[in-house]
């Protein structure tokens, strides 16, 4: 019958001492472990958790920063491209206009120079003709006066005229 009593399987009677000893041992173990093991362990686990949290936050933040930076960079690049394009277009337009202006100016200049040259040629020609005319007149007068001054026969007359003509031709 004694074996049917709870707590009496291993020995006779109720082991009241075991109860108290187990209780005391467990509570002491609980207190000691809380102080020496669980406390520090929980501390480091919490620390790691907060560390990971802050790291994730930092990573998220830098990702956002990188994203916005990238966006501004893309916008900037686009702007720069447009600017470059407009600059090139302007330059091209300006170059074309300038080229046309230069060509027109040089054409005008050439025209002007040509006209001036033609005018000079015409005036020189007129001058030359006038001079020739004067000289011919003067020579004719001279020849005539010489012919008149001397009475000569036909052959010597002719000879004389030829002489004078030659003389005139040489002096010219």
């Amino acid at each position: 019958m004694q074996n049917l009593i709870l707590g009496a399987a291993a020995g006779g009677g109720l082991n009241t001492g075991d109860i108290l000893y187990q209780l005391a041992a467990f509570l002491i173990l609980l207190v000691l472990l809380r102080k020496f093991a669980w406390g520090p362990l929980m501390g480091i686990m919490k620390e790691r958790q907060s560390h990971i949290n802050s790291e994730i936050d930092a990573a998220e933040k830098s990702r956002q920063e990188a994203k916005s930076y990238l966006e501004t960079q893309v916008a900037e690049l686009k702007k720069a491209k447009e600017e470059a394009k407009s600059i090139i277009d302007n330059a091209k337009k300006q170059g074309e206009a300038q080229g046309e202006a230069i060509i027109k100016a040089s054409r005008d200049e050439a025209e002007r120079v040509k006209e001036a040259a033609l005018a000079e040629i015409a005036s020189e020609k007129e001058k030359a003709v006038a001079t020739l005319r004067q000289e011919v007149a003067a020579l004719s007068v001279k020849i005539a006066s010489k012919v008149i001054a001397k009475e000569l026969d036909e052959s010597s007359q002719e000879k004389l005229i030829n002489e004078y003509l030659q003389e005139v031709g040489e002096s010219r």
Binding site: A10, G11, G13, L14, N15, T16, G17, D18, L20, Y21, Q22, A25, F26, I28, L29
Partner: peptide, 15 residues
């Protein structure tokens, strides 16, 4: 109080 010395020993060892 009645102590079962085997229990006392093994409780101590476990702890």
């Amino acid at each position: 109080l009645t102590f079962n010395l085997s229990n006392v020993l093994m409780i101590t060892v476990s702890s």
